[in-house]
Amino acid sequence: MRRTGRRRDLIITGIVFVALTVAGEFWVIRTDFHPMPASREAGIVDGAFDLLMVLSVPVFAFVIAVLGYALARFRVSHGDADPVRHDPRFMWGWLVVSAGLAIFSIFNPGFKGLEELRAEPNADLVIGVTAEQWNWSFSFEEEGLTLEDPEELVLPVDTRIAFEVTSVDVIHSFWIPAFRIKVDAIPGQVETVLTTPTVTGEYEANPMFRVQCAEMCGTGHARMSTAVRVVDQDEFDAWLTGMRADA
């Protein structure tokens, strides 16, 4: 009698688990958690996040199913439970599955994502970025143009760009949300981050197109941002020429 009761508990919990998982996966796959991706890197980063969501759903569903069922079914106001201290199948099963998931996630999206991020190390355009309390400066070395605390940063679409980021005072962090790139600007050190913008766009239409300081750097930290505009190559060249003429 008791035994069949226990089997029923397991079966119902199993069904709840599967149902929650299916519903969760459905939701995760249908939902777009991210702002519009605007660079090659964005695909990799968002992909990593989405894969982790897919992997988390069963873990979450399992814990919630067991917890919820136990809370719903096993509330009693008298007597002690059967003193079950072990259940090797459950314990080893748990260990193997959780270790498997953890190790899997190390390789994918972990190592795999890193490898993809590093896959194209050669840039066509190098931009020096200097952070200073509380603004950004950009220098197009080869093009012979330096912009100090400009209104906006203009970038060419579909070009491999390397940002060489440094700081002159405290630590800042160079972040363009639309591109999903972020690297700290550290005094005395140059950190390089690469990206390829894949769509044109501008800050006014999409606030993700901005250089945002992401590391606490003092009073002006919140406002330490610069608009970004991504344009096609011709427009970029025209812009460069115009800026150089102004300077």
Binding site: V45, D46, F49, L52, G110, G113, K182, E215
Partner: peptide, 17 residues
């Protein structure tokens, strides 16, 4: 579980800070 996301470097690039 969200800690696991942060531990993943590609995802953390965006999520950090």
């Amino acid at each position: 579980l969200t800690g696991v996301f942060l531990a993943d470097v590609p995802a953390d690039v965006q999520l950090h800070d």
